[in-house]
Computed example of a mutant assay.
Amino acid sequence: MRRTGRGAARLRGVRLVTEDEITAAQRRLAGRVVHTPLLPCPRLGDDLGLPLAVKAENLQHTGSFKTRGALNALLALAERDAPPAGLVAFSAGNHAAAVAYAGHAFGLPTVVCMPTWAVSTKVATVRRYGAEVLLTDELVATARALAAERGWHLLEPFDHPDVIAGAATVGREILADGPPPDLVLVPVGGGGLISGVAAALRSTSPRTRVVGVEPAGANVVSYALRTAGGVPPQRPSSVADGLAAPFAGQHTLAHVRALVDAVVEVPEESILPAWAELLDATKLLVEPSAAVGLAALRAGLVETSPHGRTVLVLSGGNVAPATLATLG
């Protein structure tokens, strides 16, 4: 377990999103995103010995929480300036689909840089929304060069206050749909989701513990916390491909350091069994990335209470049929 030291100093030049920014994101997103259900899961809860609920972001537009951040960032940009001429993004899948969805909704030409190893169904989803897909192993550099060349807006996947504020609406909904939980477990890729959830919960429910969960094969946030912002020497690779972010951002690291109680890393071999269990217990179609919280509980990596409610944030449901077939 990597304890973050909640309340640690912010990085120079980087600020945390405010309550007003989260409220503004809620206003912008009203009627544009799904208020996803917070579902009790007594089967898993009884087995684990604690009250358990799941936040089903797999039921969001495009199948993941990413739509919240992409739409909020685009709408906030349009409020401050003129709408952009087009959109550019880089992503392995879920943010790619969210930006393609946003571009389609607002009639903006969109190009998304995706890695050559991206899941074929996620590539197909991006194209279905009308976006151009460019497969490359130089995601960030290629996306930045394209944005500069075309004069289009680069919509960051996680490392931007507007994206974090959009993700924070997940936390606001958790608080709106029941008593404050004792513990919220959040899957971690680049850190945008946990940054937003922690920002939403911290001021209203300071006793709620917020813990991030990373796969050991894609642990960019834990690595950055250990190395003062360093980037892993090897490309992140995990069966939880939705969490394989190329780096941890400065904004997200600042939020994690200041607001998150701990970040834990789950062994890769624990993810697929937890995923199978989650599919069976909830009857929800989620991707392996959504199962890392349950994997952490099963591995005993997070201290729980038999009295306070625990919430698992199910980050997305974009899973390839071939991956489902691995469950036999």
Rank of each mutant, 00 (worst) to 15 (best):
R2Q: 15
L11E: 15
R12I: 14
R12S: 14
L16Y: 06
Q26F: 10
R28I: 08
A30E: 15
G31L: 00
H35S: 14
L38V: 06
R43C: 08
D46M: 01
P51E: 15
K55Q: 15
Q60D: 12
H61M: 13
G63I: 06
K66L: 01
T67H: 07
G69K: 07
A85L: 10
G86K: 05
F90R: 03
V99W: 04
F106E: 06
G107V: 02
P109W: 04
M114L: 12
A118Y: 06
T125M: 12
V126Y: 02
Y129H: 08
Y129F: 15
L134T: 14
T136R: 12
E138R: 14
A141P: 00
A145L: 03
A147V: 00
A147E: 02
A147M: 00
A148N: 02
H153T: 14
E156C: 02
H160S: 03
P161E: 07
A168Y: 00
V170S: 00
P181Q: 05
V184H: 01
P187Q: 05
G191I: 05
G192K: 00
L193V: 04
V197C: 08
A200I: 13
R202V: 07
R207W: 11
V210Q: 07
E214F: 13
P215W: 03
A216T: 14
A218H: 05
A218E: 05
N219T: 03
V221K: 01
V221A: 09
A224F: 01
A228E: 14
A228V: 10
G229Y: 02
G230K: 13
P232T: 08
Q234I: 15
R235G: 08
H251M: 05
H251C: 10
V263I: 11
E265Y: 03
V266C: 07
E268Q: 09
E269A: 14
E269N: 10
I271Q: 00
A274W: 02
W275H: 12
W275D: 01
L284S: 12
L285N: 06
A291E: 05
V292M: 05
G293W: 02
G293S: 03
R298W: 06
L301K: 13
G308N: 03
L314Y: 10
P321W: 09
T323V: 14
L324A: 04
G328V: 12
